[in-house]
Design a protein around this nucleic acid. Structure first.
Lengths: 119, 119
DNA sequence: GTCCTGTTTTGACATGCGTCTATCTTGACT
DNA sequence: AGTCAAGATAGACGCATGTCAAAACAGGAC
């Protein structure tokens, strides 16, 4: 219990849960763009694999886990990157991806539901 | 600060944050379907309007807030309904929508990031 | 019953998006 | 230089989706 005074930190310059205040058009467009990045099963699984890796992950270890072609994985990783959910770096032959937790925290806060005790 | 022992409740019979464990294909498909429902700006704003209403909301009070036709709003509300994010009931001439917070909590948990102290 | 209003459904259209193959880029190694 | 492998990009294809106008449906008022 308790949590009454837990303040969810305003990471990323945002934000208020949608149960507390309705989004305006601009906020909705911004949020929807990130949700769209997670709205594909392959991308959501990619995100979860990278996020749960506990650090960074080589593309060469990711691609074999999927049944689609390399370019398709590359395309999906690009979408995640352009949404600010992951970032990457080339080191030698290989490319490594890691999660950007700020964006996840932002979405999580947006969707958070106040606990009965917290109201 | 403090929050070290705050346990996010496993509402909806689910789930583990993606930073803790990668989703399998089935879990990713299930999650992606709900994110897809929120991946349209109009739908996300619809969701936020209904969720922040503090109860239920009449379609007749929702539609005027958007620049698209009535059938389009109806279509988007149907998508939200089929994703388990809202439910509705007709009372007389009007139809009322209200949020189903379990789905929001589920997504919020999925995207939640452990605080430094909580690790 | 008939009319009117609020909402949903239908059907059509244009655009968007996921996937592939083929090609290009980058870097390591001879 | 040349070659090889890992990823990214380009272009094409087909399916999914957001939108609207028109029609259908549900209730209330008359």
């Amino acid at each position: 219990m308790s949590k009454q005074d837990v303040v969810i930190q305003p990471i990323g310059g945002c934000c208020t849960p949608i149960m507390d205040a309705a989004l305006d058009s601009a906020g909705a467009a911004e949020g929807a763009a990130v949700f769209k990045a997670l709205s594909d099963p392959i991308r959501l699984r990619l995100m979860s694999i990278i996020a749960s890796a506990g650090g960074e992950m080589c593309v060469c270890d990711i691609t074999p886990q999927f049944d689609v072609s390399g370019p398709t994985i590359s395309h999906h990783l690009k979408v995640l990157r352009e949404s600010g959910l992951v970032d990457c770096e080339r080191r030698g032959t290989w490319v490594y991806y890691w999660p950007l937790p700020e964006r996840l925290t932002w979405l999580s806060t947006l969707l958070s539901v106040p606990t009965p005790a917290a109201v």
